[in-house]
Each structure stands twice: as C-alpha cells, then as structure tokens.
Design a protein around this nucleic acid. Structure first.
Lengths: 248, 248
DNA sequence: TGACGTCTGTGCGCTACCACACATATAGGG
DNA sequence: CCCTATATGTGTGGTAGCGCACAGACGTCA
C-alpha cells in the first residue's frame, strides 16, 4: 500500500486513539513510527527516568505502577490498545514518577518522544484525542483509588481481571500471585485467599500461573461498580464503531 | 488601569496558571472573566451534571470529591490558586463524575465553559499550561491513592493539613471532624483519634471546629513523603518567582 | 533421580480500622 | 434563660488484612 515503513496497519489502525484520527494525519504519523513487540515484563520507563519514546499499543497491555518507599507497589493505570503509554510527554513533562511495564505481551507502535511532542504542538486531531484520553485515564485513576480505599480484595481482584480481559481480548492470562499482589497493593496471601473465593464460586480457574475467566458476568457481580464506571468512560470517549466506519 | 472588567488583578494575577501567561493573552482572557467569591461549602459542580463554568481560584481552596455508592466520599483532588476547577472542559468532556466543593472560602475568576473551551482550541499558552497542570493533578491523584492505600490515618491527616495550608496560605482553618472524614475516606471517630494524636504531640491545636497548625515541620515528619512528592510536582511545574519577575 | 528454586496453600497472632452506641460539650435561636 | 441542633470525645466488640512462619507442589537442571 501507501505505507512506507509499515505494512499491516493499512487502513484501520488497531490502536483506538490512532483510529480516530483523520486518515491523512494518521498516515503522516505512521512515517515516524515503528512497530515493536511488547515483551512480557519489559520496562518502558522507570520512575524518575526520562521518557524517550511513547507507545501506542495495538495489542497487549501495559501497567503503570506507583512505587512507595518500602518497595510495595500499586497499579495506578492500565493501558491497552485504547490508549497510549507516555502521556507525560504530551503534558510537557519529560519524566514520570511511575513505572510502565508490559503486563501482557503484544505489540505497539513506537515513536520518539521528541517527534511526538512536536506533533502535539500544532493543533491537529491528535492533541484533541489525547486530551480526551487524559480525561478517561484520570477517571480510571480516581475510580481505582476509590475502589482500593473502600472495597474488599475479592471485588478489586474481580475488577482488575475484567479490566485486563477487556484490554487483552482474551479470557486467559499468565500471572503469578506475587504479580497480582503488586497490582492490587496487597499481600500475596491476600491474593491467594481472594482467588480461592472466586474459584470456589466457579468464576475463574487459577492454577500455577494460568488464570482463566470462566464466568464474566459472575465476576461483574462480585466486582464493585467501579468497573462499570471505568468501562463507561472508555466507551463514551471512543466511539469506535462510528470512526471505523468512516475510515473504511 | 487597562482592565475593563476587573480592577484589582492589574499586573500580577494571583492565580498561578494565569500568572504564567503572556500579558496579552492574559488580558484577553480577563475580558471574559468575572471575579466571584468562593463561599464556604458552595458546590461548583456535581457528579453527572454539566460543567457550565470554570474557575481560576485566586484565594481559597476547592476539593474534588469522588462519591461511592453508599454516600461515603473520598477526596481525589485539591485545587488552590495554583490550579483550575473544571479541567474536564479542557479535556473536551462536558461533565464530571466528581463533586467540586469550596472547602476554604476565597475568591476566583469565573469563565463560561463554552468560551473557555474555545480559548483552549487555538494553540496559545493557555492549553500548554493546562496540560502541565493536568500532569501535576494526575500526580496528585496517583500519590494520594498510594497514600490512602498504605499509610495510617495520622499520616494522611498530616499530609492533608499541609496541603491545605500551602494552598490557603494560612495556619488556621475551620473544619469539622465530619468534614475531614469525608476528605480522608475514614470514619469521623478515626479522625478524632488521629487529631488527638497530633494534638498530643503539640503539632496542632484543634478545638470545636478551628484547627491551628502549631508545628509545620513536625507535621511533615509525621506525614509520609507523599506530601513532599506532590509538593515537588507543583513547585517544579510553576516557576512562580521567575514568571512573576518578568511580569513586574 | 535428586536437589534446588520458585511458586502456592494455610495457619496464627496482631493491629488498624470499622460499626454501633452512648455521654458530653457548645452554639444559637426561641 | 432553657432547649435543641450539632459537634465532639470515648468505649466495646468485630473483622479485614498484615507479618511471619512453614509445608506442600511443581518445574528444571545437573
């Protein structure tokens, strides 16, 4: 096709932010992007470090973690193909206090932070979309904060699994209890117990690192409506169907 | 002076976002603004409701609260003269899930949301500043989330008091335990106990609704470094001194 | 096959915080 | 002045989740 660097992202970009851009703008951006694999546990940027590249996931999922003094962590953001990693660059900040780490393998379009920053300056559709995305991320973070404060571990685990499923498009993922404990900001033993509860209710199957969602609607019942709220925000923000149609 | 509508905000605007704008841009904005008092407990916008106006506080302080099903609330943002109320409008969203309520009386410059949205579209300094502010708010929310998850009530109370002091520029405020419990997302009795602890250590004086900070550095010692992190983010973002100098 | 490292399950005491229930202080209006 | 609203102080359980301490399960590599 007309793409100089990329072949497979011909017409409809898999990343939902890019998908909403006018064809022309999207194609211009593509020239500065390259597709890279998101390898499991790869660190995209570290707390305090410079953000050199930004990423638009096309599949897979990236966690934004906040670290607290005594090496405990808490997930403050979850980015899939609906979003972008490196939002601080958009906000004119070159560094982040968070850790961005690949939590589910996939691939992404990568772009140099400097070029990206330049693209954001002239008022095209991209900065507009990014502002809207910022809002939904903000909502996600706020709601997660509320959830972590008020709801029991079971509910939070259920919420987290549903959010991950939405972004991964799969009912099965690899993850250890240790890992989940870092996401939810609880002890591993707490994860164990909560997972046991969900398993007893036949909602999930979890053995030795592979977790399968058996009953999504059942999970939604256990999960607080925090999940629903976060979900709504994303859906409202990105009218995917409509956009995809115009691009076809 | 040259201001048609406002008199006292002659040269150096008290709001720090406005203070960073080029004189010309600031003066144009002023024409669409009016100064209003921020009355204690006034609600600027409600969850789910439209945001009709945005506010740039010049003094006083506004809380952004997230409500959870069973009428418990949690503060997810604190806005003083360093910020702006109504950020969702900047992000192309007309409504918010939060409650914005005046927590310390003062005054603000008010602007119609529609006009404001228009001002943000063409790439002046305003949207640039707002993006930077968004980042610091994002950091504030994330860090508060971490704090609420991991730290005991005493520390969180100390952090909250320090943040409030910074924004109010005063060591004494009026607030009930009930109110604080809504901010910190804990029971009133918990606030009582934590306040008792701080009082015993001679860090604050709290009796019947008026709270006085006696020993700020002592409070900082009790508070987690979450306070320091949030503070740094604000300071880094808004080089007030430098800007004020150029405007003089 | 065994030895070792990494995950997983589980139990026990402890603490912070919650839920509820009062007793008291204070302000402000009749 | 009293009377009542509202704010404050305190006590008594209950419980979720923590810290610690192991015991089994499983993979892997020699």
């Amino acid at each position: 096709m007309q793409m100089p660097l990329l072949k497979n992202h011909s017409v409809v970009p898999a990343n939902r932010i890019l998908a909403t851009l006018p064809k022309k703008e999207y194609q211009r951006l593509l020239r500065s992007m390259e597709e890279i694999p998101l390898l499991f546990e790869k660190i995209l940027y570290k707390p305090g470090g410079l953000i050199l590249d930004v990423y638009f996931p096309t599949s897979g999922i990236v966690s934004l973690l906040a670290a607290v003094e005594d090496r405990a962590t808490l997930e403050v953001g979850l980015v899939g193909r609906e979003g972008m990693v490196g939002l601080p660059v958009f906000m004119e900040v070159k560094t982040s206090r968070n850790l961005a780490v690949v939590q589910g393998a996939g691939s992404a379009l990568r772009m140099k932070a400097k070029i990206f920053a330049k693209e954001c300056q002239d008022g095209g559709s991209l900065p507009r979309m990014l502002r809207r995305y910022s809002h939904s991320l903000l909502t996600q973070i706020s709601q997660t904060a509320v959830c972590n404060r008020f709801h029991p571990i079971d509910a939070r685990l259920a919420r987290w699994l549903l959010m991950t499923r939405d972004r991964m498009g799969s009912d099965e993922f690899q993850l250890t209890q240790e890992f989940l404990s870092n996401m939810l900001g609880v002890r591993r033993e707490g994860v164990n117990k909560a997972a046991g509860t969900l398993q007893q209710k036949q909602l999930i199957n979890y053995s030795r690192g592979t977790l399968t969602i058996l009953n999504g609607t059942g999970l939604e019942a256990i999960a607080c409506n925090c999940y629903g709220i976060i979900r709504e925000e994303y859906d409202a923000l990105l009218p995917e169907k409509a956009r995809v149609k115009t691009l076809h």
